[in-house]
Design a protein around this nucleic acid. Structure first.
Lengths: 290, 290
DNA sequence: AGCAAATGATGAGTAAAACTCATCAAAGGC
DNA sequence: GCCTTTGATGAGTTTTACTCATCATTTGCT
């Protein structure tokens, strides 16, 4: 026998936020409602769920354990309901990183619209696409090392690292003739020196210490930085082909490095016709893209 | 935004049982309530969840997908709430097979009561104790081959197989002088010939074909059958020591076979003081039991 | 085939929640 | 030290969940 579900939900919201007021706001009710619900629940279960220390509340041990489960259970319900709603609207939700969205998906989106007018593609840009793997997206585009291809994933695109910068950067930082020359210049990189380490390794340079230079999370920002002459960056072919063509950035060397990373598709287990249409369209783009 | 939770729950119950009427009964409401809830959900989600083919209902594809999740989510909630309720009542719920319950636990339960008057031990007898591992029992006593000790489990008791029967059986089936003589007599066994295969192997008999004879699931029933002279069975020492002492059954040989199976404790992750007390008491019994 | 029993749908009405409002108490910030 | 913020409480209101009465369909039975 379950206690009242709205009460459980109120408890869950309060536990997540550590505040009745915040929970109330989230559920669009008054804090009074939450307070009543939680008290009712406590009475029914015979257990104190929150310790009220004057103005704020803190979960008791029992409350904490219950909250662990309610959080998972309600998230599951939320996801499942969302998915059904999308189904009804023939929406396919795709989660991808910002650079993929901007440099690969956007240029092709018109083509998709033409090919599948009935399917509504919803793109959720995210810095952590992996976090969407469960339930809240039908397709997730993840970035992985090509050697670490995730189980059950579909390879979409392989990427080759190239060192790029703007003309302005070259003027300012003298001639760059060998990869080691770069070590004296500002190198903008992502967390984990993503790209640069592979690139130096492929160029036969052994790094003695960590790279210095500004770290940005957002690859779009990094490319923008390169175009502005802020530093040298690793770009990924073919994603940045257009930037090269239009002269916003130039390649520092004519290196031909094998793909080290790639984009992979992880597809939700409920394979609707619309989802499959999108996957097929995405993989069909591959041919023309490389 | 979640739709009304009681409606989701009504849907879940209907989906599980494949009938609005049965769902209504389970939730102690009228079938009308379920019908209204499901219709409301369908309108809100914009998706048909059940196909109504005249008198009965069948889940649509979308309904099926939603039901998969609701089933898991509501089970989780139910378990979690149950656990909290037990906590409040200082109840420790233990799931175990019937033979363990009857021959090992029952004789010792008075001792437990004396040692821990505050803790209420609730014994859930089950033919499939493993099924209780998640959430609905604090401690599960599983039966495993000693070589397959489950991860994180605590060994409680090792069991040695012995061939036993009643005097009556011996009168009827002539003298049993070697293990192979047994192959001509009715051997009662559990599914998978549990016990007999190990026993014959340990006695150096290679079986040419499957064993015949009646198969029972319930070890208590099997022991009863042995006492009644229905056939020879495998008993497990020390569980059946008392039956031997009281002469209800006799050992057919004086074999000394090493333990092949054992009882293990699997303990729920939320380790309350009460649960730990019970585990400690159980394992302490081990010394006196063998 | 024909009828009774079973299942679900529907709309109106009722009962029971969930929720709000007004008021109070306690605690922390300035 | 006062003002703001957060939560508690009891009475009152609104919304929701549910029931009842009635109807439509189907299925099992003889």
């Amino acid at each position: 026998m379950l206690p009242s579900l709205p009460a459980l939900r109120a408890f869950d919201a309060a536990a997540r936020r550590g505040s009745f007021r915040a929970a109330a706001e989230h559920l669009s009710v008054t804090a009074t409602a939450i307070s009543h619900h939680v008290r009712g629940l406590e009475e029914q279960l015979g257990v104190k769920l929150f310790e009220r220390t004057g103005r704020d509340i803190v979960l008791t041990e029992e409350g904490r354990r219950l909250a662990e489960t309610t959080a998972r259970a309600f998230s599951m319900l939320e996801d499942a309901v969302q998915t059904v709603r999308r189904t009804a609207r023939r929406v396919v939700r795709l989660a991808a990183g910002p650079i993929f969205t901007a440099r690969w998906l956007m240029p092709r989106i018109g083509d998709f619209w033409g090919a599948h007018p009935g399917v509504q593609l919803e793109v959720a840009p995210s810095f952590r696409p992996r976090a969407h793997t469960e339930g809240d997206a039908d397709i997730v585009v993840t970035w992985e090392r090509v050697s670490d291809m995730p189980e059950g994933a579909v390879k979409l695109l392989e990427l080759r690292p190239v060192a790029i910068a703007s003309e302005q950067f070259l003027d300012r930082n003298g001639p760059i003739e060998t990869p080691t020359d770069l070590l004296r210049a500002p190198l903008i990189h992502q967390r984990n020196q993503l790209g640069w380490l592979d690139w130096f390794a492929a160029m036969g340079v052994r790094l003695e210490e960590d790279l210095r230079g500004p770290v940005f999370e957002d690859a779009n920002a990094i490319l923008r930085g390169a175009a502005d002459g802020q530093g040298a960056v690793i770009g990924w072919l073919p994603l940045i082909q257009q930037d090269l063509n239009e002269g916003r950035v130039v390649r520092l060397f004519n290196e031909e490095i094998a793909p080290t990373h790639g984009y992979f598709l992880e597809i939700a287990s409920d394979r609707r016709a619309e989802t499959i249409a999108v996957v097929n369209w995405l993989t069909a783009q591959r041919a023309g893209s490389v």
